[in-house]
Write a protein that binds this DNA or RNA. Structure first.
Lengths: 172, 172
DNA sequence: CGCGGGTTTGATGATGCTCAAGCCCGGTGG
DNA sequence: CCACCGGGCTTGAGCATCATCAAACCCGCG
């Protein structure tokens, strides 16, 4: 417990402040103590595509860039003012010596894995409306924490389509 | 090495034979020695949606069902005649005692994680044609091992659309 | 009061789906 | 050896879904 406390470095981010920018290597991984963050890619037309939303008790960072030390394809920034606990790759290898931490990490990874799998399945098998319903079911907090244009991007649709989906589904 | 050899149970599947059916708990996880398998969900109209294709040296199984012991949403069957090495959840906990195995597993999980993340990003940010190009780039073997209607389903499009995408992109 | 971010609405158009038909080709049985 | 069959692939016409672009609206805040 002592080692854990010693290793994590607190970090405060203001609204809209970047935690990672595309092209950089992701040197820090963060645990969200308070706040809300988003991870997204930007296409050639400048559109943002949200690949991940993180709120309290979630991890944030580009896992691939972090472990492979490759330049990231993604941007990560704070949507709300956010408190993080951050660590570096070398910090992580220290923590990996602690069995209980390793196990906890494995379980968290597993959960994240399940979530990604479900999202892949949703994206190839469900319509825009069904995907929205599924999100509202699985992560209802998101709908309060993030504006609709972000939710829409997370779902892979435009804000206009989401607006119409919502108005037609409340009618039922 | 001895323990590893003792634990894995070889299994042979014929073409189209099920490894897992929706509603069952996934009791076995498999390593593909030779062959090709697919994992898919089936919607209410009876359409299959491919969430995962596995060939030599890949793992196969529904991770969520396997670890949580919950009924699976997916079917898994052999597309070609396939040789597997299988293990159960209890077998796995034995292997987890072996540090080198644990590390290997962590690395494989990580790679799978990266792949899922990329697929999510592709599904929300790319067109059908771009997704096909990306797949052809990343896993060219798939195009030879699986018929087009399966590739199409993996990409989240219909076989007709894939056919048109291909014919228009070879013209260029 | 006016500004800015977020949301809604409408008209139009592109992308991809559905349904139906025909083709290609390897395999099977007469 | 040929006829037929079935799975996979292609093509076409019409249609549904969703994107785009533009305008207006809403509302909290300086």
């Amino acid at each position: 417990m002592d080692t854990i406390k010693r290793i994590f470095v607190p970090k405060k981010l203001r609204k809209r402040q970047y935690f990672l920018q595309s092209g950089e290597v992701c040197k820090y991984y963060g645990f969200v103590v308070k706040g809300a963050m988003r991870q997204y890619s930007v296409d050639e037309k400048g559109n943002e595509h949200i690949v991940q939303l993180s709120i309290e008790n979630w991890w944030v960072g580009d896992r691939e860039s972090f472990t492979m030390l490759t330049p990231s394809l993604y941007f990560i920034d704070a949507w709300e003012e956010t408190d993080l606990l951050t660590l570096t790759q070398t910090d992580l290898s220290i923590l990996n010596e602690i069995p209980v931490f390793l196990e906890m990490k494995a379980r968290m990874d597993e959960n994240h894995h399940f979530a990604l799998q479900k999202r892949v399945n949703a994206s190839i098998s469900l319509s825009a409306e069904q995907r929205y319903e599924a999100l509202a079911q699985m992560y209802p907090e998101f709908l309060h924490r993030f504006p609709q244009h972000i939710i829409a991007s997370y779902l892979g649709i435009t804000k206009e389509t989401l607006s119409r989906v919502r108005s037609s589904s409340t009618k039922k």
